[in-house]
Amino acid sequence: MSAARSAGEAAARAPQPPPTATRGTAVIELRDVSQWYGNVVAVNDVSFDLEPGITGLLGPNGAGKSTLLHLMAGFLRPSAGTVLAFGEPTWRHPELYRRVGLVQEREAVYRSLSGWDFVRLNARLHGVADARAATARAIERVDLGAAAHRATGTYSKGMKQRIKIAAAIVHDPELLLLDEPFSGADPRQRLQMMEMLRAMASEGRTILFSSHILEEMERLGERVLVIVAGRLAASGDFRAIRRLMTDRPHTFAIRSSDDRVLARALLAETAVRGVELGDGRLVVRTDDFGRFVTAAPRVARDAAVTITELYPLDESLESVFEYLVSR
């Protein structure tokens, strides 16, 4: 991952993060990958490496997340560029599936099969030596033992999601690709699933999950790939990315000796876009991080107000994302 970019470079908004030299641990490598459907470009010149651990693939609906996952799963021939898994092209390479597990977005399962039979079928199609034991293990892992002998057609959304994961991990893959895995799960199931993915990652597996929900990314994604309109907009540790993007609007909370006076004084500053009073604090929105930071102490001094506290409010991925998406 290329999190360690200099702030200056980021401010210049280099169109493409440089493909960092691999340290030999990359499980997935994308090099200059583009994918188009007719006139529509779904993925536009994307390069990145994926290493063991959990990575989140973040983007709004239609950004190209599923297309990227499908490319990595060998379900699409890249229109341009190369997609490698374990050093080999994923396209037309079924043997790779021994090491790859895929959880697709659609809720589809073989409805007439029971959960147990469904997972066991996947084990047998993978040629797993002891399909029975593998099935038991996978079902245990997603905690569906109680419902394993019911037809999957009768499952709730969250249960279907879990049985799909069980089917995808039954052959013990090193790489797990999950397309929107938390959709349809209630908050408790979501936490359980996250716990499970963390445990799997700690065993040295590579896990990539896509999501358009920031909370999920924030809780699980140690690293993120942010994709917007088919292009890789950012990658790396999301807090680091956030720090690098100094040219976007920021929001700060200020506690001071006289919020009302300070608010009026700050409004005169061109760097300040808006001010809101309330909740015992002053919320300031600014377009220009650098100018605001230098201006705030001066304004306070001139107005004879003492600032007791000043902290950024938008350290969440939500704000990073909103910024990237609405640009």
Partner: peptide
Amino acid sequence: MTEPAAGSI
């Protein structure tokens, strides 16, 4: 600038 408020629609 609107009236200062904790929440606004």
